[in-house]
Amino acid sequence: MSNLLNSLKIELRRGTLTLAVLSQLRTPQYGYSLVQSLEGAGISIDQSTLYPLLRRLEKQELVSSSWDTSESRPRKYYVLSEFGLEIFSELKKEWINNSKELYSLLGEGDDDENEFN
């Protein structure tokens, strides 16, 4: 039961992960700073998923990357490309619309319950 619930929860979150990451990359971030800002917003992300995801986004040309070697520790920074910004705003719209629809759908269910009680 709890196993099933967990896997369903993971499934629910999976699609939102890309959106969450894209939202944070409007300003340049390196791997760990991205983890921290996501966690700061209450979104915990499996790190073994996040780093490959960043590479994939780069391959899809949604983000661009650059090495900053000016400090003692070299860091790879990622930031949204112009194309990535476009995609991000589309996805954002989509997500907001979906949430609204789902919210009203879930609200209906609550009404039914109330009627029966």
Binding site: Y30, G31, Y32, Y51, R55, P74, R75, K76
Partner: peptide, 14 residues
């Protein structure tokens, strides 16, 4: 090499 470099800096960050 690129991934090794990034992983090392990430681990040190953490």
């Amino acid at each position: 090499s690129d991934i090794a470099l990034e992983l090392r800096s990430t681990i040190e960050d953490m």
